[in-house]
Structure formats: structure tokens, C-alpha cells
Amino acid sequence: MRAWTVCDPKAGTLTQSLGVARQFDPEPHRVLLKGWLPKWRRGLFSPYRRLPEPQPDLIVSCGSIAPRHVLAIAERCRKRPFLVHLQPADEETSKRYDLIFAGRHDMRAIENPPSNYHAMLGAPHQLSAEALEELRPAARARWAPAGGPVVTVLVGGPTKAYAYDEPTIAGLIAAIRAFAGEGRTVLVSPSRRTPPELRDWLLSARSDKIAVWDQAGENPYREFVAAADAFLITKDSVTMPSEAATTGRPVFVFDLAKTQSDKLDEFEWFHRDLSETLGLTRQFEGRIYDYAYEAPDESRRIAGIIREKMRLD
């Protein structure tokens, strides 16, 4: 089966699309979008008049600007591809997709969702428990050669919902140093959203027990996740706790300074759902401890629903 992904180049949307599409095609064709597709760009003016071969059997899209591009691609295909979108869409667009997957935190605001809607847990992604376990021995040999417990700290950046004020940063640095003081190896991974000043604060904490990626060279993110015995993750991300939970290891969420907005309500609901309803995460209150949960594999689960629907059709 030939799968395409259609999304903007942001890491969050791209990893969702690829995580699902790679369940069908190990190397999906990527259509990376630079902006909205104007309505007049149809027919002879369409950027998709000539599609690369082989044409898609399945298109997985994500992000608000993607649907118009997807529909323009689909109308140029010799055989209509199966269309999947990983985000809520407006009513008219929803009718033209075969399946739409929306986060549980988004579904709560949709009254009487159409039959092609399905809830998803957090965000699908490209990590799998099997691949991480295979990588784990080499990752621990590289980053924790002395052995002992490893805590991986995943750091995002300011958003419309959360801010990194000085007390927040100081608390995060103190937690990192406390883990090292307890004899743990600490692996700290800033993200693309981490501003330089926050990255520099994190780099200042480096020691023989604390490794911080300086955002230069190859990103060791997968190795950091594979090596972890537990996680501390800042609250500004949906994808990072979703990826960490794939391991089945303890995931603690670090609170941030709040910025009043609609996004804050969404994120707070999302984290309450992960912790209180699903039991996947815990609020960080100064210590790391073990607890058990059934690790989700959302990309594989979503792919199963797609396969079932394609067979029914």
C-alpha cells in the first residue's frame, strides 16, 4: 500500500502523520505544506495537476491547513485514496474524509460527533515499545555507562497556555540537580520550542551525572527515551508524554506558570485525563517513584481502525 502524509513541517504534526502512515508504508511520500491553498487554485491552476507515482492509496493529514490540499490531491488521483485526518475539522470538510481522529481533549467539545469521528489518546507518534527496547542497551551503555537509574527530562517551551518564569526555571533546575544528587543519571532533552535562554539555563546544570543536549549535532531524543527508567516532562506538550508513556515507565509532569487562555483549559483537561482518568502519568511533587499502567500504542491502534474501515468499504 502506498501512503502519503500531508501536513505543515512542524515536528508535532509531522510525527503524528508519519506515525500512522508508517503502519502501512515504511517510507510514506511526504507533502510538506507552506500555507493555505487558495480556492482558485483548481483545475489548470492546481499545484497537484501532476502527481508523482505511485499515487496514494491512503492519505494521512494533520493540521488546519491540510484538508484543502488533501482534497485537491484526491480529486487528481485516478482512484480515490482513503482519507484520514488527525485533528477536528469543520462540518463540510469532515464529510469528505473517511475517518477523522481527534484527541480526547478535543472530542469533549464536539456535540454529537459524526460517525466517522474517533477519539485518540494524546497524539500518535513514531516511537514503539519494541524499537525502544531494542535500542535501550546501546543507549544506556552510551549515556549511563556506570549503570544505575536514569531519569530523562523532556523540556518544551512557552506556549499560549504556559510560561517559563524565573521561579519555574529555578524549580526545574533544582529538580534535575536533586535527581543527580540521589545518584541518578539525568538526561535532559530540550525541544525545538525551547528558547535559547532556557536552553542555556539547562546547560548550566551539566555535570558528570547530568547530560544536556545542546541542540547541536544529531538529536539523541530517541536514545534518551530508550534509556529512561522514569521521565519528568514539562506540561506544555501533548506529544512528549504520549511518547514517553509508550515505554510503560513512570511519567511525571512538571507544572509550569499558567497563562489564562482557552489553550490553558485544553491542556489542563488533557493532563487531568492522562493522570486521573487513564492513570498514565503523575503530577511531579518532588519525587520519582514506580507505578504501573498499560502502555498505549496509539499509532497502531489508529491503524487498526483504518484497516477495519477500509475492509468494510
Rank of each mutant, 00 (worst) to 15 (best):
T5G: 02
T5K: 04
T5I: 14
D8E: 15
T13D: 13
L14V: 06
S17N: 03
L18W: 05
P26V: 10
H29E: 14
V31R: 02
K34C: 03
P38C: 12
R49H: 04
P52L: 00
S61P: 05
C62P: 10
R68V: 10
K79Y: 00
R80A: 12
P81A: 05
A89Q: 08
K95H: 14
D98V: 00
L99D: 09
A102Y: 12
R104I: 14
M107C: 07
P114E: 05
M120D: 09
A123K: 14
E130M: 05
E133I: 00
E133Q: 15
A139P: 07
P145G: 11
P149L: 13
L154H: 04
P158H: 10
Y162G: 09
E166A: 01
P167N: 02
T168D: 01
I173S: 14
A174H: 14
A175G: 12
R177D: 09
F179R: 13
R184A: 09
L187I: 04
S191G: 12
R199H: 04
A205Q: 07
S207C: 04
A216G: 05
G217Q: 00
E218H: 11
L232P: 07
V238D: 05
T239R: 10
P241W: 14
A244Y: 12
A245S: 15
V251Q: 08
L264H: 07
H271R: 11
G279C: 11
R282M: 08
Y293A: 04
E294C: 01
D297N: 11
I305T: 13
I305S: 09
M310N: 02
R311Q: 08
